[in-house]
């Protein structure tokens, strides 16, 4: 069962921030998240897995935009993710959430 993290790293928060952008209802691809956050693939995917396992984002396979291309994995922030992000961005809580988990 997914559990909410007590602390999130700045990188994890930036991923959630990116997913939250645009109202949080958009599905974003890994490349888009990498471009927005500046994270490399080697850091991004372990992070996505961790956030997914904690129930802070959901993922699904989307049909390819062009025929002959593979389906792509897309990500969207969950309600729990939004709550954690909101909590982390509160001015008095910001310090608690800084640092790697």
């Amino acid at each position: 069962m997914p559990t909410a993290p007590r602390r999130l790293s700045d990188q994890a928060l930036s991923v959630l921030d990116t997913l939250q952008g645009g109202g949080g209802d958009a599905w974003l691809y890994g490349l888009e998240i990498a471009a927005a956050t500046g994270l490399k693939s080697g850091s991004l995917y372990p992070l996505l897995i961790r956030l997914s396992e904690r129930g802070l984002l959901e993922s699904r396979w989307l049909e390819p935009e062009r025929p002959g291309r593979p389906a792509r994995h897309a990500y969207k922030i969950t309600g729990a993710g939004k709550a954690v992000l909101r909590e982390a961005r509160r001015p008095d809580e910001a310090l608690k959430f800084q640092g790697a988990f």
């Binding site: 890994g30 693939s41 080697g42 850091s43 372990p46 593979p70 792509r72």
Partner: peptide, 30 residues
């Protein structure tokens, strides 16, 4: 599934892909 997800993004990259591929290899090794 995550390895397939990384591969699908790799296929979608238009420009140089070596950095992405090396990062994926590092993640998989981890």
């Amino acid at each position: 599934p995550w390895a397939r997800a990384m591969r699908a993004e790799f296929e979608a990259i238009g420009g140089p892909r070596t950095g992405w591929a090396l990062g994926c290899l590092g993640a998989a090794a981890g």
